[in-house]
Design a protein around this nucleic acid. Sequence first.
DNA 1: AATTTCATAGACAATTTGTCCACTAATTCG
DNA 2: CGAATTAGTGGACAAATTGTCTATGAAATT
Lengths: 203, 203
Amino acid sequence: MERNDAEPAKRGRGRPPSVEVRRRILETAAVVLLENGVSEVTFDKVARRAGVSRMTLYKWFRSPGSLALAAFEDTYAHTLRPPSSGDVWADLRTHLREFVANLSEPRTGPMIAGLLGSAQSDPVLAEEISATFTRPRREGAVELLHAGRTRGQLPASIDVEVLVDQLWGACYARLLLPEGVLDEAFADALVANLRATIHASAD
Amino acid sequence: MERNDAEPAKRGRGRPPSVEVRRRILETAAVVLLENGVSEVTFDKVARRAGVSRMTLYKWFRSPGSLALAAFEDTYAHTLRPPSSGDVWADLRTHLREFVANLSEPRTGPMIAGLLGSAQSDPVLAEEISATFTRPRREGAVELLHAGRTRGQLPASIDVEVLVDQLWGACYARLLLPEGVLDEAFADALVANLRATIHASAD
DNA sequence: AATTTCATAGACAATTTGTCCACTAATTCG
DNA sequence: CGAATTAGTGGACAAATTGTCTATGAAATT
């Protein structure tokens, strides 16, 4: 998203970027994002409402989608909890519930859907979203399932990378497609289906 | 998508819509869709390239996305095969492979992804896509799984509506998110994971 | 022949994008 | 201190797209 990132202090010579300006930009973008959705987050509108020169936005953000993602991260992003615990089923329930709660929140859900939607016609935005949102979550999920398989709580022959899509990916599908609802019951049903198949022959 | 639909012959009084004009519009839109993606399918561009008045497009199509969907349907849409057969596993393999092949085709895959992307900021387009693409496929999938459960090939306690998202929805997730690849191996792995869990306790 | 609907051609304002330039402001280096 | 450097402003411009509006002609039905 933003062009510079790592060094907040080690700036060369010139005038340092104004934190104040940056804050106003991100705050305004976040408000527009919340009120009107991703498609309304334009350089023009944000610049006018933030009382900032449009050129500054062009300098720091690659595209309106990129700005929207930065504002989302800055204002609405949640921190990730570690996979932890020793029971896959408890972990799955906890993490899927939390994930679904995040995706189905009236504020953040449509934002994420909109961002992923814009990413379909913007490969760079897709990579940015992957780096800051989807990939970290996927890695946690893989870790969780892998640990469970190692503990023998999941069949050894299971493909963990695919199973992630069958759980978390299914949630994304419900978020992005108009079919079916995305709620806590769905999260529980995902886990229940997995358990149902595993215990089917044992019952 | 288009405003009228059902009655091709029973037109009231005035001059009938020109099939020729309609054909040129859809053909041109399909070409633009193929060459440049959904975001390039604009009323202006299609009208100019088709040699047709822009007003005509505004009359027949609600939005550029809607036009793109109509062109997609008209030119690239596949017909659905019935669920049939007596073996869930064979059916799953066949249908998921066919579905994945469709979604991962270099032409149709990005088109569908782009259309679903546009739908994130256009609820009416979302409903149109649902009616002509996602819902019919989902209904076939539910039917397939329901039949398998009735035959006792799937645990009775399984939630079929949720399992659809764990199979077909997982494919949509791989299509729409930048993580993971969507290929025939993935389709097979989805089925394999399901079988692995079912037979886990029996082995 | 009158009515109705389709199609065209042109015009217009409003947004947004992307780029350019000149100017001012703040900070560091020599 | 002064020069170089980077940040931010304000204005301007062309280009594309949308949405709407007019006027005009073309093709069908009653």
